[in-house]
Design a binder for these strands. Structure first.
Lengths: 338, 338
DNA sequence: CTGCCGTGTGACAACGTTGTCAGGGTCTAG
DNA sequence: CTAGACCCTGACAACGTTGTCACACGGCAG
């Protein structure tokens, strides 16, 4: 900036005025400074500028998701990015991989970087640590999992409802022995899906067989194994509900290995690209990822703009997408057929 | 910081020393300052710190990909993130959506933010504009598409080889009428894949039917349409090569609609999650996304560390992943069979 | 001619931090 | 007892920018 001022023969302040398009600079000077800026490839130092300006924004928001490479996280991030772009804000993204410690250290880092806002898909059970972090006034919005131990905006899917929709759908088709595959039950989303699974049964007077409900499954391979084990039971399930898309792929594989893809019904939570190309197409409970992302973005920027109403907790309703795999009727006997 | 100094009864500089874990502070004072820091929730202002330090890094890298929500971009980003994390660096991510203008403005913004490095999956044809941007010394690494008009490191997949692998595979199975579905030919990746498609044919003395080679297809629906049109020809293709995964899903859909999934061979460029669950499993040319991301990360940080050797251009070899859809033999007559 | 106003410009301090250097205290060797 | 060395600590300037304020100039009314 000093060089620009020297080259244009003006003071630092005048360069600042031109760069910031402030009024009150004669066209002549404005032109001279502009030329000098271009000639020297001058770029204002945003850090210094923010330092000086009172209450300036960094134009940066932090987004902490479970895993940038999974389609749910990536979809939410993408929708958020679009909102951020319209607010001339850049996005700092990171994966938490369900690691509590990483969540805390990332939040700390981002707050230290003075991001204007924070979006968190939490890995931790409780976020008490956030109370201190957010004392600086950084707004935070939770997504996918509600906050515990700290009061903040959130956008979550109604996991209970989603599971119930799926199970009711299967019950309507006559299924009575429905297997449930779930993630770690201490994760709120998994917990609610298990609850929805159970509630749908009991509401209809059906008692779910506890042997058919398996939780703590965290990989596709484990899911394949579990499904094989369930199908080996003397009274195997006639339908399967997968509580997460990666568990659904394990289930699909197990069914395929036994030639049962058209014999055992399957419904999954979470849609994914190309689920409709499977044969039969995979019936899923879909979360509207981009709507979730947009909602989160909108709420975050309202807070950044100074909105100070009490935290809002938006619950997005998932929908059942019928594609075939979930519409296989109960087959009372002779499941081995092709 | 001033408050901390006052509370601890020391000078600003001493607080600075404690915060930065500099040597030469008595344990007593260190402890007092530490307590004050905790009590006041003090956080150093990174911007100010960077401003003062000579040649300090921002601990920030910019990553510009095609679309954060597609699995290739997301996978590369994720692998990059892991490298960045090990270097205590955060990642600023953005989607370009093949928009040239956005590429330029994002690069400009990121350079102004003083990122330590830049990763670009270019949307533009030429990147001459970068010469001026990079004069500040910000290193850049290109991924997926090589740089034009500016000399910089790059990591790209051998698209020519990938397409050739696929076509040779199909030719080996006796196919002679192979359809090719491609993206816009002015995009270098598409261009090379078309070239590989053609070269594989001519190397084997087969003349590809120009009517079977369609480029400029940019959506799944368009691909479906095109495949239907090709299958309506008097002499339809016995195999299809999809030059991109989104085109593959269009092709799968068209084949499914005609009950030809087990009759017409299909090989696609780009793997995607759950491609193995299709029936038959989709045979693809796979790019090792996480290796690409890691390589890019490694190269970028070498530059950030001051490496000044001439730019390197790494070409990653793709591999053919056989899953069934590509191994359907040529069926000389009566393709309509189920 | 004087005084006032508006316009364009610049000097200076300040944002929050750290590098430099100097000073005061304690310790050790001569 | 003194000189030198060493250890801690603090004063001060500087990083690149912008807010505040003052000043110089030309024009205009009295």
């Amino acid at each position: 900036m000093r060089d620009v001022a020297a080259l244009a023969g003006v003071s630092l302040k005048t360069v600042s005025r031109v760069v910031n398009e402030e009024a009150g600079v004669s066209p002549d000077v404005r032109e001279r400074v502009g030329a000098a800026v271009r000639r020297l490839d001058y770029r204002p130092n945003l850090a210094a500028s923010n330092l000086r300006r009172t209450g300036a924004r960094t134009g940066l928001v932090g987004v902490l998701v479970q895993d940038l490479s999974n389609s749910f996280s990536a979809g939410v991030l993408r929708a958020l990015e679009d909102v951020a772009r319209s607010r001339r804000t850049a996005v700092l993204a990171a994966s938490l991989d369900e690691e509590l410690e990483r969540e805390q250290s990332m939040v700390h880092d981002l707050v230290t970087r003075r991001v204007d806002g924070l979006v968190i898909m939490p890995a931790s059970q409780r976020q008490d640590y956030l109370v201190a972090e957010l004392r600086t006034g950084t707004p935070a919005v939770f997504v996918d999992r509600p906050p515990r131990g700290v009061d903040a905006d959130s956008v979550v899917v109604d996991n209970f409802l989603g599971a119930r929709l799926a199970i009711e759908h299967l019950l309507d088709l006559g299924h009575r022995r429905i297997a449930g595959l779930f993630h770690l039950p201490q994760i709120p989303t998994a917990h609610d899906r298990i609850a929805g699974f159970t509630a749908a049964h009991t509401d209809r007077g059906v008692r779910p067989d506890p042997r058919l409900v398996v939780d703590g499954i965290s990989s596709t391979d484990e899911a394949t194994e579990v499904v094989h084990r369930l199908l080996d039971l003397a009274d195997p399930p006639s339908a399967i509900f997968a509580g997460r898309n990666i568990l659904a792929s394990g289930a699909v594989r197990a069914l395929a290995e036994r030639g049962l893809r058209r014999s055992v019904a399957l419904v999954s939570f979470d849609d994914f690209p190309m689920a409709d190309l499977l044969d039969p197409g995979l019936t899923v409970v879909r979360q509207d990822v981009s709507r979730i992302g947009r909602t989160v973005g909108r709420m975050l920027f309202e807070r950044i703009d100074g909105e100070s109403a009490p935290p809002r907790h938006v619950v997005v309703e998932p929908t059942l997408v019928v594609r075939g795999s979930g519409e296989i009727p109960r087959r009372p006997e002779g499941q081995r057929r092709r």
